[in-house]
């Protein structure tokens, strides 16, 4: 199945995924022990974990025979990307306005 691209809000909108993030905010956990917290099939848990990984909320590392999930900042940093984009945006637009009004003064 093709991995659907979800935005951060869609990723977080799901209660099971929120619960997973909360569990992982306390501790890194293996997929098996994470699955133990949920009343759903192992493939269903894996699917949610994949969604979280794609969105940058968690990373997965193989330790021995277990796959371990760790919380990542990247998903939360998407908000910060908006800020840095619009900061540059406004600087350039305000420069336009300055040029426009300065020109008007000269004329």
């Amino acid at each position: 199945m093709a991995q659907q691209m979800l935005d951060v809000f869609q990723v977080i909108a799901d209660p099971s995924r929120r619960q997973m993030l909360l569990l992982l905010s306390e501790n890194s956990l293996s997929i098996n022990s994470l699955a133990g917290h949920f009343d759903m099939s192992r493939p269903a848990v894996s699917k949610h974990i994949k969604v979280l990984e794609h969105a940058g909320f968690i990373s997965i590392a193989d330790i021995g025979r277990e796959r371990h999930c760790t919380l990542q900042r990247q998903g939360f940093d998407a908000i910060q990307e908006w800020l840095s984009f619009f900061d540059k945006f406004w600087i350039s637009k305000l420069k336009n306005l300055e040029n426009l009004l300065n020109q008007k003064t000269k004329n």
Partner: peptide, 12 residues
């Protein structure tokens, strides 16, 4: 930073 702040001065 959590917000953007800019000040521009005009003769108008």
């Amino acid at each position: 930073p959590t917000e953007i702040n800019h000040v521009v001065y005009f003769q108008q």
